[in-house]
């Protein structure tokens, strides 16, 4: 199985691809607010993954050293999801709310897809 950094690098590549697609959709389709919401949600979802990766590394170091870990940053991830939706509510005329909530889940879908493809190829 691949390393944590490898998974994170692959996910980053896919998220940038999705963000590029969102930029194209924002510029060239009649639904700019929907694509803006998707991009915002994806960006915050990826921020969640970055926090999770950082906390995992901290957890790994703590286990190796035998020290304690206080939390895995669950509250921060909840708060960043709420922050994305709060931004969408504040700028409701530019950012579509439901697509922001859907965009928050895009990195999770990408992670699942990447893992399924990895399992099928290697096992």
């Amino acid at each position: 199985m691949s390393d944590l950094h490898e998974i994170y690098a692959k996910l980053r590549k896919m998220v940038f691809f999705v963000l590029a697609l969102c930029a194209l959709g924002w510029g060239f389709t009649p639904y700019p607010s929907v694509f803006a919401g998707l991009a915002l949600g994806t960006a915050f979802g990826f921020y969640n993954f970055w926090i999770l990766k950082r906390r995992m590394e901290k957890f790994d170091r703590a286990v190796a050293e035998g020290s304690q870990v206080r939390s895995l940053g669950t509250a921060i991830r909840f708060a960043s999801g709420v922050a994305a939706v709060a931004l969408a509510i504040t700028f409701a005329e530019h950012i579509h709310l439901i697509s922001t909530a859907a965009g928050l889940m895009i990195p999770y879908l990408l992670l699942l897809t990447e893992r399924i493809i990895h399992q099928v190829r290697h096992y």
Partner: peptide, 8 residues
């Protein structure tokens, strides 16, 4: 660690 990352 990888499995834990995906699980969490």
């Amino acid at each position: 660690q990888t499995t834990m990352f995906i699980g969490v």
